[in-house]
């Protein structure tokens, strides 16, 4: 998909993320907005998937280890056609298919029940091993948050992916530098993240994780037949795309007032219009 079309899709997803917070709802919007360009590129451009056959055995898999960023996954799954878009309006309702964390048994396209941090990488390794044992060439993509890296289980996953030579695993670390309490560097500094993954035996690339062309570029380099898993250290901006929230810890969990919501939506709509005009101009 052309980068411009991906940018438009990502902005549409941002609008859906905000739509899920209408009516006095609240959610983990900061991380959702920081990783949504990665999810958009994966679901629209990279992964071998079929929304009409979401459990096809040879599909590529996506695991949102940072499960609280579910708003981004819901928005992209809805845009990609996994479920009717109006379902997003049930976000966080009693018994909704769309809760604060994803549930594989409730929503097509969700592959694991994440939310507790530090679980996704090991689950992804299990899927990757299972696919390889069954001689399937499918790949497993994971999004980790930088804030979850202190969980030791991530490094169990990092070790096993390298040891078992899981070249079919690609893990993005959404490095938005912030978590609930403040700067990740101040709360628990896990830098140098790239060096840590490299030391575990991963191939590591560092990109701007809000730039779809860089995301596409790094994905084009991944060799699924390699004996090394790939870590993409994606430098992002927390709450990217809503300027009043960007790069603030307060955006981690946000309950927008009506006026704040209107302003945020207007900002995204204006950007969408600009992107569309650029497309037409070409």
């Amino acid at each position: 998909m052309a980068p411009q079309d991906l940018r438009i899709e990502a902005e549409e997803a941002r609008l859906l993320i905000l739509r899920m917070l209408r009516g006095g709802r609240s959610g983990h919007v900061g991380g959702a907005l920081s990783c949504v360009d990665i999810l958009t590129t994966l679901y629209f451009d990279e992964m071998d998937i079929d929304p009409l056959e979401p459990t096809r055995p040879d599909r590529d898999r996506f695991i949102l280890s940072a499960g609280h960023k579910a708003l981004a996954q819901y928005a992209v799954l809805a845009r990609r056609g996994y479920f009717p878009e109006p379902w997003v309006d049930t976000y966080s309702d009693l018994g909704s298919r769309l809760a604060g964390h994803p549930d594989m048994h409730k929503l097509p396209g969700v592959e694991a029940n994440t939310g507790a941090l530090g679980h996704g990488l090991s689950i992804a390794c299990g899927i990757a091993l299972g696919l390889r044992l069954q001689e399937r060439r499918s790949r497993v993509f994971v999004v980790l948050g930088d804030g979850e890296l202190p969980e030791g289980s991530n490094w169990e996953g990092a070790a096993m992916a390298a040891h078992h030579q899981l070249g079919n695993v690609v893990a993005f670390v959404d490095v938005n530098d912030l978590q609930i309490s403040g700067r990740t560097a101040d709360v628990m500094n896990m830098e140098p993240i790239a060096d840590k993954f490299a030391a575990f035996g991963w191939k590591v690339r560092t990109i701007d994780g809000n730039d779809v062309e860089q995301i596409q570029g790094v994905l084009a380099e991944v060799d699924r037949d390699s004996s090394s898993p790939t870590a993409v250290v994606a430098q992002t901006t927390k709450a990217k795309g809503v300027s009043s929230l960007e790069d603030t810890a307060a955006s981690h969990y946000w309950k927008p007032a009506a006026a704040e919501m209107a302003e945020a939506e207007a900002e995204i709509r204006a950007r969408l219009q600009q992107l569309s005009l650029q497309t037409v101009a070409r």
Partner: peptide, 26 residues
């Protein structure tokens, strides 16, 4: 031997792996 998977001394990660393996039908 191909169906015997070694993870070293770690139980949390290996349990996650078991879950992932099961999602593929194993």
């Amino acid at each position: 031997p191909g169906r015997y998977l070694e993870f070293g001394i770690q139980e949390h990660g290996a349990t996650g792996v078991a879950s992932g393996l099961a999602t593929t039908g194993l």
